[in-house]
Design a binder for these strands. Structure first.
Length: 489
DNA sequence: TTTTGAGTTGTTCGA
DNA sequence: GTCGAACAACTCAAA
């Protein structure tokens, strides 16, 4: 059977909401016929893990931006909702499309959906082609000398860097994208109901973020021009704007990791001073952590459910709705923890250092299962990522690959003093403590009564007493880890 | 097959 | 106040 080169090609957008360096989109254009860009809000009995509220908010903006970019090239984004297979089949039937292209995804459930669609379409005599649009190194492209996957970051990173070679990016399509004679039916963006209405809790997100490919590129440029110089030395300070803020853009594929890699590599190569080069190199290594997470997601499913280390199946988590709720709402009585949790709730994002602090607090001080924390982050983070989120939670809790040593329990007071030394972060997100002097800001329960009174703080009323004693909680956590270690032995 | 070196992000204690 | 050692061996990856 010969293919009619004039028949349309469907490009199914998923986690790659951009025009630049998008291999599937370029393939669709190169096919020579009309191009039908489509996004499907996948819901229904077959559904994948649903996006959290914050991610849905972001997705709305990202789709809006993508549709705008496509329209500028004479095309548009067709939007639909439901199970992907019947939606795509109906679309192919309605438009006569005989080819579908997409960029690959790596969660086991998503791979299953994609595989089913591929075999179904191929059985209908249609062509399906997939590409790598999301990763520098796909999970099967690197392996240990023995042929297995990596469980330790450093050798993975070494191997990935070797496999990478020279990274190249490809530009967005130039000129008009050919349209079909007639556009198929599409839902409107509003029909997808991605943004909250009553109540509209997204005010803080709107103030903080601009989704979309254009903003992603600007964020990268601003990071390199304005923040990279202090990235290596200041990136751990919660109140300092020294991180890339690229995570949600990468999550939705508004910018490709290859584009980020090449930009930072260039900085590293051209750097005039050692500090600048080191900062760029440090960031590249962080990007490889994202790759490592996807490596694990692919090889160790289901990463968001099962402990990477089996012995953690016996860990004595203490489920408590009260304690979990105190953590979620930022009412633990530990200011650095509460500030982080409120930053998350208000802005859909949390500083990397503080993520570790709050995750350590939930899993070690409160002994609440890491899966509960992962689920909360999944719902509240604009950058909630199928690989990074569970991999990082498992790393902190100790159940993960290349996990933190079990005795590494963050002390929330020390972490506060170290990484928010003047308390600017706590003051910004825990305003009821704002008037406290620096000395007591990270441990208000040690402040003398007159100091508390002068600052307008009444512990247990305006701000909670600590819900656990850290020293005792640390001891209890170490004992719990000791126990599963002995059981495993 | 065995051996060897290495391992993101910390805290506490005692000198 | 500062510093080094202890924390617990264990697993992974590569030679």
């Amino acid at each position: 059977m010969t293919r009619d080169t004039r028949s349309p090609t469907i490009i199914w957008f998923r986690d790659d909401l951009r025009l630049a360096d998008n291999p599937a989109l370029l393939a669709a254009v190169d096919a020579g016929g009309p191009v039908i860009p489509v996004f499907i809000n996948e819901t229904g009995p077959d559904s994948l893990r649903g996006l959290g509220g914050a991610a849905r908010w972001w997705l709305h903006g990202s789709l809006d931006a993508l549709d705008g970019s496509l329209r500028a090239l004479g095309s548009r984004l067709v939007m639909a909702r439901g199970d992907a297979l019947p939606v795509l089949r109906a679309l192919a039937n309605a438009t006569g499309a005989d080819e579908i292209v997409w960029n690959r995804r790596y969660h086991p459930d998503a791979r299953e959906v994609d595989a089913r669609i591929k075999s179904s379409f191929e059985a209908d005599g249609r062509k399906v082609t997939s590409f790598n649009g999301a990763l520098l190194v796909e999970p099967w492209e690197v392996s240990t000398g023995e042929g297995s996957f990596y469980r330790v970051y450093s050798p993975f990173a070494r191997s990935a860097r070797q496999a990478l070679g020279a990274v190249r990016t490809r530009p967005a399509p130039t000129g008009r994208i050919p349209s079909p004679a007639q556009w198929p039916d599409s839902l409107s963006l509003a029909d997808l109901k991605l943004r909250p209405t009553t109540p509209d809790w997204a005010g803080g997100l709107r103030e903080t973020w601009t989704p979309g490919e254009t903003a992603a590129g600007e964020t990268l440029r601003n990071f390199i021009d304005e923040r990279l110089s202090r990235y290596k030395t200041k990136r751990d300070f919660a109140a300092v704007d020294a991180t890339s803020r690229l995570s949600p853009h990468l999550r939705f594929g508004e910018i490709s990791p290859r584009a980020v890699w090449t930009a930072l590599s260039r900085v590293a190569e051209d750097a005039s001073g050692a500090a600048e080069r080191q900062a760029a190199e440090k960031f590249l290594s962080e990007l490889l952590w994202r790759e490592f997470s996807y490596h694990l997601l692919y090889h160790l499913p289901p990463l968001e459910q099962a402990n990477v280390q089996d012995k953690f199946d016996a860990f004595p988590w203490r489920q408590s709705d009260d304690r979990r709720a105190a953590w979620e709402t930022g009412a633990t009585g530990y200011p650095i923890v509460d500030a982080g949790m409120r930053q998350l709730w208000q802005t859909g994002w949390m500083h990397n250092r503080i993520r570790m602090v709050v995750a350590s607090f939930l899993t070690k001080d409160l002994l609440v299962d890491w899966r509960d924390g992962e689920a909360w982050f999944w719902d509240t983070l604009v950058d909630a990522d199928a690989a990074n989120n569970p991999a990082s939670w498992q790393w902190v809790s100790g159940s993960g690959a290349d996990a933190a040593p079990y005795f590494r329990v963050f002390n929330p007071v020390l972490q506060g003093k170290k990484f928010d030394p003047d308390g600017a972060f706590v003051r910004a997100y825990v305003p009821e403590l704002a008037a406290l002097p620096e000395k007591y800001l990270h441990e208000p329960w040690t402040a003398p009564a007159d100091v508390l009174e002068e600052a307008g703080v009444r512990l247990g009323e305006t701000y909670p007493e600590p819900i656990v004693d850290h020293a005792a909680a640390r001891k209890r956590a170490l004992e719990a880890y000791q126990k599963i270690k002995e059981q495993a032995a």
